[in-house]
Measured scan of single mutants.
Amino acid sequence: MQYKLVINGKTLKGETTTKAVDAETAEKAFKQYANDNGVDGVWTYDDATKTFTVTE
């Protein structure tokens, strides 16, 4: 399945996608991506759209 990440950071904004077997695996990949880019915020997930959002 394909999952999307929407980033609403202080210095980084945008979107990225990943393919993963489940939401938990996608979340780990997205959190690593956010961490690598210095984004630390509040996470939400919408199962209907398979979209994670992180807001600083």
Rank of each mutant, 00 (worst) to 15 (best):
M1Q: 14
Q2W: 14
Q2M: 15
Q2D: 13
Y3D: 01
Y3M: 01
Y3E: 01
Y3A: 00
Y3T: 00
K4F: 12
K4E: 03
K4N: 08
K4P: 01
K4S: 08
K4C: 06
L5W: 02
L5H: 01
L5A: 02
L5I: 03
L5E: 01
V6S: 04
V6K: 08
V6I: 10
I7D: 01
I7H: 03
I7T: 04
I7F: 08
I7R: 01
I7Q: 02
I7V: 11
N8C: 07
N8H: 08
N8G: 05
N8K: 10
N8M: 11
N8E: 10
G9L: 15
G9Y: 08
G9R: 04
G9E: 03
K10N: 13
K10A: 15
K10G: 14
K10E: 13
T11W: 15
T11N: 14
L12S: 08
K13S: 13
K13F: 11
K13M: 11
K13Y: 08
G14Q: 15
E15Q: 07
E15C: 06
E15V: 07
E15T: 10
E15G: 05
E15D: 05
E15W: 11
T16P: 03
T16V: 15
T16L: 13
T16N: 06
T16A: 13
T16E: 07
T16W: 15
T17W: 15
T17V: 09
T17N: 07
T17Y: 13
T17G: 05
T18M: 10
T18R: 07
T18V: 14
T18S: 05
K19E: 14
K19Q: 13
K19L: 15
K19A: 10
A20N: 03
A20F: 10
A20L: 03
A20I: 03
A20D: 03
A20R: 03
V21M: 12
V21D: 11
V21Y: 14
V21S: 11
D22W: 03
D22P: 00
D22N: 12
D22E: 04
D22Q: 04
A23F: 12
A23P: 11
A23G: 04
A23H: 10
E24M: 14
E24C: 09
E24G: 11
E24P: 12
E24W: 12
E24A: 15
E24K: 11
E24Q: 14
E24R: 10
T25D: 10
T25F: 06
T25H: 14
T25R: 07
T25Y: 07
A26S: 03
E27V: 07
E27Q: 12
E27H: 12
E27N: 05
E27G: 10
E27C: 06
E27R: 12
K28C: 05
K28L: 11
A29D: 11
A29N: 13
F30G: 00
F30Q: 00
F30V: 03
F30T: 00
F30M: 03
K31W: 07
Q32W: 06
Y33S: 02
Y33A: 03
Y33H: 05
Y33W: 12
A34D: 00
A34S: 04
A34L: 11
A34R: 01
N35G: 12
N35R: 14
N35P: 01
D36S: 10
N37P: 01
N37M: 09
N37D: 03
G38Y: 06
G38H: 12
G38Q: 09
G38I: 04
G38W: 05
G38D: 07
V39H: 05
D40F: 12
D40E: 13
D40V: 13
G41S: 02
G41H: 02
G41D: 01
G41A: 02
V42E: 13
V42R: 07
V42W: 11
W43H: 01
W43G: 00
W43E: 01
T44Y: 08
Y45C: 01
Y45A: 01
D46P: 01
D46E: 08
D46Q: 04
D47F: 09
D47P: 14
D47W: 08
D47M: 09
D47V: 09
D47N: 11
D47E: 15
A48M: 11
A48H: 09
T49F: 05
T49A: 08
T49S: 09
T49C: 04
T49M: 06
K50P: 00
K50N: 07
K50Y: 13
T51D: 01
T51N: 02
T51I: 06
F52I: 02
F52R: 00
F52Y: 06
F52S: 00
F52P: 00
F52L: 01
T53I: 07
T53M: 08
T53H: 06
V54I: 12
V54C: 07
V54F: 03
T55E: 09
T55W: 08
T55F: 08
E56V: 09
E56C: 05
E56W: 11
E56A: 06
E56T: 05
